[in-house]
Design a protein around this nucleic acid. Structure first.
Lengths: 106, 106
DNA sequence: TGGTTAGTTGGCGTATTCGCCAAGTAACCG
DNA sequence: CGGTTACTTGGCGAATACGCCAACTAACCA
């Protein structure tokens, strides 16, 4: 694996890794309905505000969301709507697994 | 976040996490051209055979690939072709970032 | 100005991930 | 058989990721 390829793949991996956490998936899903402030997302996931803020910075660094400060609140919104397509494929994998589990149990 | 939702999101996250590594992305990409044995993938990524084997078991546990032993070799193949669609979106994110970097430097 | 709400950042303990080596299994070959 | 190739698994040290608390900044409000 040459250097250029490795760098490119690591850039890809960083983006995908940013999506690999239940709370962040939940936030992405919520943001697909429109922008939300950090405190709304905190209520949604039920974690400490600092935890939520750090999750959002992971998503932001990955280039998946963008933020805008308005008054005392910071609103986040989805920057790349296509991430939602990820989920349909992930669901397909899960359904596959469910089908197999069923087949084995029979 | 209720229990059922959390469990479902963690299942999603586990699958996505399996994709969040440069070597595993490289293998997935290679497998999109057809099945490969572990030693071919080892040559591709240039890591220890045991490392590659563990990466493959991560992908297998996530339900993304399946394996078949033939003689002394084990062949892996992509089980869910739609994972390739992930990459087009990831590329879109990267292009977005590149565009922004350019805009900032101007 | 002092207080309150919203958010970010630093730091710490814990948990998970990563990659190698070493040891084991499994199939083939002489 | 014994040897070799192909792979898996256990384990260990190093590096990351997580989640909370505490401390800080920023904007608004009385």
């Amino acid at each position: 694996m040459d250097e250029t390829t490795r760098v490119r793949l690591e850039a890809r991996a960083r983006i995908i890794k940013a999506l690999g956490h239940a709370s962040r998936l939940m936030m992405i899903d919520e943001l697909s309905f429109g922008e939300r402030c950090v405190c709304e997302l905190r209520d949604l996931v039920g974690a400490d505000l600092s935890t939520v803020s750090k999750h959002l910075s992971v998503l932001k660094n990955a280039g998946l969301v963008e933020d805008e400060k308005r008054g005392t609140q910071v609103f986040y919104r989805l920057k790349v709507p296509c991430v939602l397509k990820f989920f349909s494929c992930v669901e397909a994998v899960l359904e596959n697994q469910a089908r197999e589990a069923q087949r084995i149990s029979r």
